[in-house]
Design a protein around this nucleic acid. Structure first.
Length: 877
RNA sequence: GCGAGAGUGGUGAAAUUGGUAGACACGCUAGAUUUAGGAUCUAGUGCCGAAAGGCUUGGGGGUUCGAGUCCCCCCUCUCGUACCA
């Protein structure tokens, strides 16, 4: 071998690592500190890896390799979140059993991941579709039944006829299914729910201690949506027995409540509606029921509603106020009813304007003729007094406390907290998911005893749901009919299955003891390994996966299965990788290039893709070269339809896994969104070739003559300075996840070392170790080359200690100062290091610099700034 | 609308506490070696200018001897969210 040929090097080392189980984690070694570094659970899709996967995986692999070399016992596993809709839909289309597809896809993913040289412990693979795994998923759900955290409910769900299943709110985007984009409608169905709301407060509170991106924490906080306020009771004018309870965050505006609104689905509506209004109300309710959530929000500019004919009494001032129904009030939030304060709530203001309802000012500070005044900092209560209490003159916060106290004393209301978070709709009408460990006896659901687990999926060849929306499992006759193991009574199995989230809620625990038989995780090992020290994945899981997993973890904590309150101590989101930068010009019907925005008829324009050479930059935009016609210059999300998808396999084939890994890390900061560039891959590939030539003579294929063993040549100060600078920079940058600048430090070392006539092994060896987390195949290869030269070193560098830098080697003989005059750099001076901190000496040298002198002669020096080892500034007047 | 984040060369980006802006890489220009090369090496490359010099981190103000970095106002983009009372 002569040139750098990754296709020859890489498979050899991958096989070596695998065969010798180099990265197998030793569970019983409790002396070393542990480090658990985790990638987000991949779904093994049929299309294989995309370049986004290796981004996070490379980052965690670098950390894992680095931590091992630093003496940590590292847990770095991978597995498969393999239940899910695509395999089932493929089965419906082709008749191929989902298990078959799943196995094939997993094999594909495993092959791809291994071809990238990731240092996973392959003996810990887990697969959510394996009964040995989902046995414990079912077990956890069983525990939830026991704790009363799972219940059945008939809820209007997002029924997608095309997919034949119910979708969670978060799987519906703009009224269409996230998968496939099919229309979704509302339909009431029997469902399993999990009481995540019971954990709302803890899920919110425990965010505090987590080292997560602030944006993700904020999204979770918003999702949980805690509001503090009061519940207040309004009695009805005509019906002494009925009361309307409302939730408000602004009890201080109670005197300004001029009407009330119930959600159309509110149970009181039938009871309070007057005869005269019955028809109008019924009509409105029917219309509202037909609307999906999307339609409701879509129409949010034009609020609608109907008067019920009933009046309620405002408890603070005895005013009789009309009760309306309107779909801008949601049954699922708060109490499903509001007191409307149009003076100080935008929505109520709009509604009141439209239906000509009175608007009263009770907080001074704005102009309620123009818009609702919602400020809570400056506003002062007015018009808010009765015989017993007056809020007048109080700021909002104080008014809130006063009125809440009063309401409570009177039994008219009390302090209340409401969350946006809803219970988790936990069942799906699908085949390819975990069956529930539940049977129905005498029409009632009953959890199975633990020893009946796992409840395995029945073999089927028809995966279509029934026409009524009953899950496919309803067709599994033999499986469906069973007996209650306790009573022997005939029983029917639950036919819903769990959503895909279930398996991914606790997989990080199974990795710890994948073969443990007595529970989901070996408690002793759990105590050693948990929590996860570093969790890396895409921001698309910011809310759902991370919230669900935190919820399950807390349940497991409560029943003593895990020892930590939170599963993931530190979270990092990798930024999305976009396609290559694209230049697009637009032509109109007559074939003239136009500006897309100025033309104002964007839909008729023809899009022309231009190359980099066909455009130039003018001002702050790109134009067609030689003309003034602007073009769009943008990178887009990779997608099949756009044709800008990069397949990692192709990159590996052309440049090798090390180049792919290196490029993905060199592109920019891990967390940032960044566009792909094939030329950038070329760049790092050239770097690796240069590294190769630092060691190997391309003509002969032998090590270069410049390499000196320890016996032949001592490293000199220049060698050591360069090396130790690299060690310092690379070490600190890996610790701070600044992989791009770490690579740049490796490049600087290589560029300099290439010029050396003598390349001492004792300098090259640490360099190879620094390179190894980034480009492990090349590093192993070069390590073995060095081993042949001086007969030292192990067969693999994976367990070598990480190099440490020596401060003494970093010292310079001289220091360089920038010399400024009035803040502008006018010269540069070099002074001996031992005198660099001597102010008078350095200033004298600076004054004598010819370039500086010229600028000093213009006036009088009034001030001299001296920043040791950096800069001097003369202020001249 | 609201919330969060980000704007630095032709491009991806550096600049860890306020101290020489543009490291490293891509691209480009010239040259060398060369049958050729998407190979390698050398030199150059923020902008304006012949040079001296001036200008420059989205725009405008401010603090400071000194601002990409701190403060105020504005603009643009990305992501999230959507009647949550």
């Amino acid at each position: 071998m002569s040139e750098y040929k990754p296709e020859l090097i890489e498979p050899r080392w991958q096989e070596f690592w695998l065969k010798n189980k180099i990265f197998q984690t030793d569970d019983n070694d409790r002396h070393r500190p542990k480090y658990y570094v985790l990638d987000m659970f991949p779904y093994p899709s049929s299309s294989g890896l995309h370049v986004g996967h290796p981004e996070g995986y490379t980052a965690t692999d670098i950390i894992a390799r680095y931590k091992r070399m630093n003496g940590y016992n590292v847990l770095h596993p991978i597995g498969w979140d393999a239940f899910g809709l695509p395999a089932e839909q493929y089965a419906i289309k082709t008749g191929t059993h989902p298990r078959k597809t799943t196995i094939r896809n997993i094999d594909g993913f495993r092959r791809q991941l291994q071809s990238l040289g990731f240092s996973y412990d392959w003996d810990r693979e887990v697969d959510t579709t394996d009964p040995a795994y989902y046995r414990w998923t079912q077990w956890i759900v069983l525990k939830m039944f026991e704790k009363g955290l799972a219940y059945e409910a008939s809820v209007p769900v997002n029924w997608c006829p095309a997919l034949g299943t119910v979708l969670a709110n978060e799987e519906v985007i703009d009224g269409k299914s996230e998968v496939g984009g099919y229309p979704v409608e509302r339909k009431p169905m029997r469902q399993w729910m999990l009481k995540i709301t019971e954990y709302a407060e803890r899920l919110l509170e425990d965010l505090e201690g987590l080292d997560w991106p602030e944006s993700i924490k904020e999204m979770q906080r918003n999702w949980i949506g805690k509001s503090e306020g009061a519940n207040a009771l309004f009695r009805l004018k005509s019906d002494e027995t009925a009361q309307i309870e409302v939730f408000t965050t602004r009890p201080d505006t109670l005197f300004g409540a001029t009407y009330m609104v119930l959600a159309p689905e509110h149970t009181l509506v039938d009871r309070i509606t007057t005869k005269a209004q019955k028809e109008a109300v019924a009509e409105y309710r029917e219309m509202a029921a037909r609307k999906s959530d999307l339609d409701r929000t879509d129409l949010n500019k034009d609020k609608t509603g109907v008067f019920t004919g009933a009046y309620a009494v405002n408890p603070v001032n005895g005013e009789e106020i009309p009760v309306w129904i309107a779909d801008y009030v949601m049954m699922s939030y708060g109490t499903g009813a509001i007191m409307a304060v149009p003076g100080h709530d935008e929505r109520d203001w709009e509604f009141a304007r439209k239906y000509d309802l009175p608007i009263v000012e009770v907080v001074k500070g704005g102009n309620i003729e123009e818009e609702a005044y919602t400020d809570i900092e400056e506003g002062i209560s007015v018009n808010s007094a009765n015989d017993e209490i007056s809020l007048n003159g109080l700021p909002v916060a104080e008014a809130k406390t006063q009125i809440s106290k009063w309401l409570e004393e009177k039994g008219l209301g009390k302090y209340a907290v409401t969350y946006k978070l809803r219970d988790w709709l936990f069942s799906r009408q699908r085949y390819w998911g975990e069956p529930f460990p539940v049977i129905h006896v005498d029409g009632k659901p009953k959890p199975l005893p633990e020893d009946q687990l796992p409840v395995t999926l029945p073999e089927m060849d028809d995966f279509l749901p029934t026409k009524t929306g009953e899950p496919p499992l309803a067709k599994a006759g033999d499986w469906l009919q069973t007996t209650d193991p306790e009573t022997g009574k005939p029983a029917v199995r639950e036919t819903n299955t769990m959503p895909q989230w279930a398996g991914s809620c606790w997989y990080y625990l199974r990795y710890i003891s994948p073969d443990y038989e007595q529970g989901p995780v070996d408690p002793e090992k759990e105590k050693y390994w948990m929590p996860v020290d570093l969790y890396v994945g895409g921001a698309e899981h910011a809310v759902l996966h991370l919230l669900y997993a935190r919820f399950w973890h807390k349940v497991l904590y409560d029943i003593g299965v895990v020892s930590t309150r939170e599963p993931f101590y530190r979270l990092v989101n990798q930024g999305m990788i976009l396609g290559e930068l694209e230049f697009t010009a637009y032509k109109d019907n007559s074939g003239n290039y136009v500006h897309p925005e100025e033309s104002g008829k964007g839909e008729d324009l023809e899009r022309i893709k231009l190359t980099e050479k066909e455009v130039e930059k003018k001002g702050d935009k790109f134009v067609i070269r030689g003309t003034g016609t602007p073009v769009d210059a943008r990178s887009f999300k990779m997608s099949k339809s756009r044709g800008n998808v990069i397949n990692p396999d192709d990159v590996v084939k052309q440049y090798g896994a090390d180049s792919l890994r290196l490029y993905e890390m060199f592109m920019g900061p891990l967390e940032q969104v960044k566009p792909w560039s094939m030329q950038g891959v070329e760049g790092v590939y050239r770097f690796l070739k240069r590294v190769w030539r630092l060691f190997i003579d391309e003509e002969s294929g032998e090590p270069v003559a410049q390499i000196m063993s320890a016996a032949e040549a001592e490293p000199d100060r220049v060698h050591l300075k360069l090396l130790h600078e690299a060690i310092k920079k690379v070490t600190e940058d890996i610790e701070g996840h600044r992989f791009n600048t770490a690579i740049s430090a490796l490049m600087i070392f290589t560029n300099e070392a290439m010029k050396w006539d003598s390349r001492p092994v004792v300098v090259l060896r640490p360099f190879v170790l620094l390179l190894s987390p980034f480009a492990p195949h090349l590093a192993e290869e070069l390590w073995s080359v060095l081993g042949k030269i001086d007969g030292k070193g192990e067969a693999t560098l994976a367990n070598e200690p990480w190099p440490e830098y020596d401060e003494a080697c970093l010292k310079d003989d001289t220091k360089i100062y920038a010399v400024q005059v009035n803040g502008k750099v006018r010269g540069q001076i070099e002074v001996p290091a031992d005198k660099a901190a001597v102010k008078d000496f350095v200033l004298e040298v600076a004054r004598n610099d010819t370039g500086v002198q010229r600028h000093l002669s213009n006036g009088k020096v009034v001030k001299e700034i001296f920043v040791p080892n950096r800069v001097i500034n003369f202020v001249v007047k």
